[in-house]
Design a protein around this nucleic acid. Sequence first.
DNA 1: GTGAAAGCGCTAACAG
DNA 2: CTGTTAGCGCTTTCAC
Lengths: 327, 327
Amino acid sequence: MPGPTIYDVATAAGVATSTVSRAFSTPGRVSAATREKVLAVAAELGYQPNPHARALLSGKHHTVAMVVSDITNPHYFELIRGAEMRARVSEYTLLLVNAEESPRVEWEQIQRLAPAVDGFLLAASRLPDENLRQIAVQRPIVLMSRELPGLASVVLDHVEGCRQIVAHLSSLGHRDLVYLAGPRNSWMAGTRWAALKAAADQVGLTARRIGPFTPKVSQGGAAADGAVNAGTTAVVAHNDLLAIGVMQRLAQRGLRVPEDISVVGFDDIFAADVCTPGLTTLGGAHADLGRAAVELLLTAGTRGPDDQPRVLLPTELVLRGSTGPVA
Amino acid sequence: MPGPTIYDVATAAGVATSTVSRAFSTPGRVSAATREKVLAVAAELGYQPNPHARALLSGKHHTVAMVVSDITNPHYFELIRGAEMRARVSEYTLLLVNAEESPRVEWEQIQRLAPAVDGFLLAASRLPDENLRQIAVQRPIVLMSRELPGLASVVLDHVEGCRQIVAHLSSLGHRDLVYLAGPRNSWMAGTRWAALKAAADQVGLTARRIGPFTPKVSQGGAAADGAVNAGTTAVVAHNDLLAIGVMQRLAQRGLRVPEDISVVGFDDIFAADVCTPGLTTLGGAHADLGRAAVELLLTAGTRGPDDQPRVLLPTELVLRGSTGPVA
DNA sequence: GTGAAAGCGCTAACAG
DNA sequence: CTGTTAGCGCTTTCAC
């Protein structure tokens, strides 16, 4: 079962193990003839270098771990996809870890894997800032959908995005909006609210926040009722899942979208395009976020702790049927 | 940067490296006092065992690789989720690999990772049977959504599921159906068609197949036109993505679903529930498939090559608005 | 250009 | 119960 080793190859090819090693890692330092022979024998035996042995003395693992705060959220799937694809290009392997929304689990997993990976991608980490800094001294890390001064990060530009949302609603005649907030320990939730509030203030629109809500379809009912109760003409939900849940509840209550109330989401997940009415949502190239994060991680060695990049990718407001002029 | 090793801990605690090792791996074989001390020192130094060194001589990696034929298909996400969660429970790490629908890429990735993982989960593998058998002699493998005699597999019970689809359509008065086939090298596509055909024959319903189609929303247009051209009252699409694309195209052509034509999909992805009309689709606990596959893989050592389990999980036909009585 | 030998971090005999 | 020692498979000096 344990495949052939360089010893087997060396014996079969009549050379030393070091020569076999060189034939693979530094082909220039072996004569063409021996190299050919070694490679031929290796191929015949089905030899595959053992990554563990290699990692053991090189310290390089060719592996990055991606820790996702909640793998059940379809939105992260795009990030995972993008990350996997970029990693593959550099022949890196992607380790996938689910933190189950638990900071403790997240921390334990990271500590466990730290000696075995080249770096971490932390998507929507629920860890306190201090913990993130601790990790960063052990291993290169890149935050996704979260920012922290001194650490590399990739996020969508929500300031500009929220400005667009507000401009859109304002142009339709809405005079106020209600933000259905995401979880308390979500950096994104805070960011979205701040950006929304600032943009609203700027154009003289009233912005209120209710919540927090767990951003799932099932929570849409409570969120919708809260919004109706608040008496607004426009709601901006923390994400598309919540927004879809809201629309379902509104329909149930006999309220029409967008005639009676406009709904906006975040993420532009696939379902936003097929629900009725289509959901107006702030999207962006999420797979690119994943790609950019891996990119940053792989080049982390070239930067000092003082110039950790903060990549801001553009959002795009996708207009669909869920927003319309105020009656 | 390279964290502390057992040597550092041993020195600091004034014991031998083997004692440190034992304190971690076989706590029973050390006196309580020394164990306490070692663990304390280790914690203080922030010592973490190096998994590579451990794997190097144990041959156990506590890692399983999941190879997905096409990571862009949201359906696989559920499988990935389930697998990740089950792996986590046993403190296994899940490696995620995308084969990009290419048998060559799939094969290369598997060969590359073989020496570094405890086994493979192959989801909808596009590899020929022969290659699968070759892999199976190197490492334990579990096929997902594919079967091959002699290899462990987990699939949904499409025979029964397709029978239900046919019964449903038949009860609505449909006398024939058209299957919009998936890719040629997809085992699932062949299986679905065979099951559909058999079930149709049994109840005296005419079944025809057109395609193959790449199962994406964008291919729904061509598929829908083909179905309309064939002049049928019911189409069964290879998966929900294709079905949704079909419904979009039908709407565009002014055809009503289900009044003019009924549509059925496979997978019950999230979007099937929010599109209009809701999509009738053959679902099942896909996350459970992922779980079951990991389960099988982790217990693979206990079975001989002659009793490789073939796990069949139940499907469930989810009735929504896209199917209705024939006019 | 190639071989011999040391050692990466850890565990598993084998002594004591 | 604990220390000594020999590798796991590979790369990397250091000689030749």
